[in-house]
Every structure is written in structure tokens, then in C-alpha cells.
């Protein structure tokens, strides 16, 4: 159980985390989602006692990280920036960590086996691929068999097989009753791994909810897909306040701001033939984007041409 309470972190004038509060319960995988620069890594560093909050408090199972007598037995963490001296071998890196707690060498061998680094563990980390580095980071996080596991962007750099491996590992750890907290800027990744979501943007809490609720909530206001041989007439019939129409592939239109019922009735009233009328589910990425849109720190300066609203039929068809 991780409890973050009214945590604010300022670096000079810049507010990285702004009055953030949330809980990470044990027994499930909790995803920590937000665009790059939203304060995810900073929040994790605050949880781990690496940085001190400007105000507020963080506890893990009721204790501040600094107060643990054997922190690696309580909390295992992998930071996004690899916290490894690359001149050392993977084995020696893990050994040095284990020795701070008086853990035996056999535990080092166990975690190397667990993450599948047996063949390369004696090589210097300098020569590791991104994926091997991630596995080493995960081995370091698990060396103390901790009750709480905190991973910053764990799937970065992993191949599909590695991604599936880590998903299953995290679910198994949660099923064992541990607290599992992982960050990502990829919604699709979270949907397949996490049950609970904490969403942040610009250092503020945007949502603290289950993945299921998050997706269904975001589907309201999703577009309707329409195909008609009389496209221009349909655009004219539907145009109005708050309605956004854009052409997509094969002469189809995507309509926002109207329900499929309203579109069907408008088409009938104007004697327009429809070939297709489909209410679309918001994709997870859409849900995430619509929630965090205002919270993204840097927008791309130019919109993609395909996203431009259509006024003249056939312009993009």
C-alpha cells in the first residue's frame, strides 16, 4: 500500500508535482499514466525517498521509505534512467546491492535466473542491449523479494516476448498480494497489464479509477462513422453548432457531436441514402488523449492534414 498525500515538488520556479494525492492498493497492478513530463518519474522518486517533497507526505505500508531497516525487502524499484554503473558486470551490480542487506550470493543467482540473464550476467553492463538492461533493472528491483514493486516505464526497449514476460510477471506478483505500481505513457500497455489507473498531467491528478471505468467514461462523445453516396448533401444536412465532420478513407465520414440516431433521422428527413452508420468506441489512446489533452506540456505545432475538419466533400476522400 503506497499512500501519497498532498505532495508538491518544486524545482526552483517549476512545479513538477502539484498537490498530488492517491493510494496504490496491494493485490492488483496499478498503472501510473501521463504524458511525458507529467511528473510520473518525479512522483516515483519522491516515493522512494530519492527526492524530498516540498510539502506533503508519502508512506509505504505506513512508513516513510527512509525509515525502513531493510528497504530492499520492502520496496523494489526500477527507475527509468538506468541507475547502474555500466562499467560493472550485471552480477556484481546485483551482488553489491545484495550485500548492503547481508543477502546471500544465492539470492543474486536466483534473480538472475528469474529474469533470464544467466548467459550475460558476467558481462559488463556497457555491452547490454536495452532489453537486457531492463531485465537487469527488474532483477535489482526483485532482489529483496519486496512487498511493493515500483517500475518506471518497464516495457521500454523490450521486444514483444519480453513485454509479455513482464506483463505476466507483474500480474503474478500482484496475485501474490504485493503492491505493484508501474508508470507508462502508453495507454494501450496499461490496459493490458493494470486494473487500476492513476492518471496525471502537469503534476496534477486527472483520474484515479479502474481501467474499465476509464475506458467507458471516455467513450461518450465518441464519433459515429457514416458512409453515403451523397456525401456533400449529408454534410450539409448535419452541419450545425457543435458538430464536427471529417472525411476518412473510402468516402466515409466521422461525425462528432451527434448520436447515430440523430444522424439516421437527419438522413431520412433529407432523403439521403446511407450505406453505413456505426457508433465508434473510443480507443484507449483516444480516451487518454482527451483526458490529458490540456495537460500535455508540448503540443506538436502542426496538426496532421487528415485531422482537418472537412467542409468540401471529396477533398480528402
Amino acid at each position: 500500500m503506497i499512500q501519497v498525500r498532498n505532495v508538491t515538488k518544486r524545482y526552483g520556479a517549476k512545479v513538477a508535482v502539484d498537490d498530488l494525492s492517491f493510494d496504490v492498493p496491494p493485490g492488483i497492478v496499478t498503472g501510473f499514466l501521463g504524458p511525458n513530463g507529467a511528473g510520473k518519474s518525479t512522483t516515483m522518486r519522491l516515493i522512494l525517498g530519492l527526492d524530498a517533497p516540498t510539502s506533503g507526505s508519502v508512506t509505504i505500508n505506513g512508513k516513510a521509505y527512509r525509515d525502513f531497516d531493510a528497504p530492499l525487502n520492502e520496496v523494489g524499484a526500477m527507475l527509468e534512467a538506468r541507475a547502474i554503473h555500466t562499467g560493472r558486470s550485471g552480477y556484481n551490480h546485483l551482488l553489491a546491492l545484495a550485500q548492503t542487506h547481508g543477502l546471500p550470493r544465492s539470492r543474486v543467482d536466483e534473480v538472475i535466473e528469474l529474469v533470464g540473464l544467466g548467459a550475460v550476467a558476467r558481462r559488463r553492463v556497457k555491452s547490454f542491449s536495452l532489453g537486457m538492461g531492463q531485465r537487469l533493472g527488474i532483477a535489482a528491483a526483485l532482489i529483496g523479494d519486496p512487498e511493493t514493486v515500483i517500475l518506471d516505464e518497464p516495457v521500454n526497449g523490450l521486444d514483444p516476448e519480453g513485454i509479455r514476460w513482464i506483463r505476466e510477471l507483474l500480474k503474478r506478483l500482484a496475485a501474490e498480494g504485493r503492491t505493484v505500481f508501474l508508470s507508462s505513457h502508453l495507454m494501450s500497455e496499461m490496459a493490458q497489464t493494470a486494473e487500476h489507473l492513476v492518471v496525471v498531467g502537469r503534476g496534477r491528478l486527472i483520474a484515479d479509477t479502474t481501467v474499465e471505468e476509464f475506458v467507458s467514461g471516455a467513450s461518450t462523445g465518441a464519433p459515429v462513422r457514416v458512409r453515403s453516396p451523397q456525401g456533400q448533401a449529408l454534410v450539409d444536412a448535419l452541419a450545425g453548432e457543435g458538430v464536427e465532420i471529417r472525411s476518412v478513407e473510402h468516402g466515409a465520414l466521422e461525425v462528432r457531436g451527434l448520436t447515430s440516431e440523430q444522424i439516421g433521422e437527419a438522413a431520412t428527413a433529407n432523403r439521403i441514402v446511407l450505406y453505413e452508420l456505426t457508433p465508434l468506441q473510443a480507443s484507449l489512446e483516444d480516451a487518454f488523449m482527451s483526458l490529458t489533452h490540456d495537460a500535455v506540456e508540448y503540443h506538436a505545432s502542426a496538426e496532421a492534414p487528415a485531422d482537418a475538419p472537412v467542409t468540401e466533400l471529396g477533398a480528402n476522400a
Binding site: M1, P25, G27, L103, D145, E147, A175, E176
Partner: peptide
């Protein structure tokens, strides 16, 4: 140590788990 903090129900009941590694201590 149990993973379930007092007052916080765990959504998935934690099965009995034998600690794989001995507990250490920073000295």
C-alpha cells in the same frame, strides 16, 4: 509481513506465500 495494510481491503485475496529470500538488514 502481510501485504494488506490495516483498513485497506485487498481486491485479490493474497495467497499464503513463503518468502523466497531471507530478510536482510542494512548495517
Amino acid at each position: 509481513m502481510s501485504a494488506t495494510a490495516a483498513g485497506t481491503p485487498a481486491p485479490v485475496p493474497a495467497p499464503a506465500r513463503v518468502r523466497a529470500s531471507p530478510k536482510g538488514r542494512v548495517t
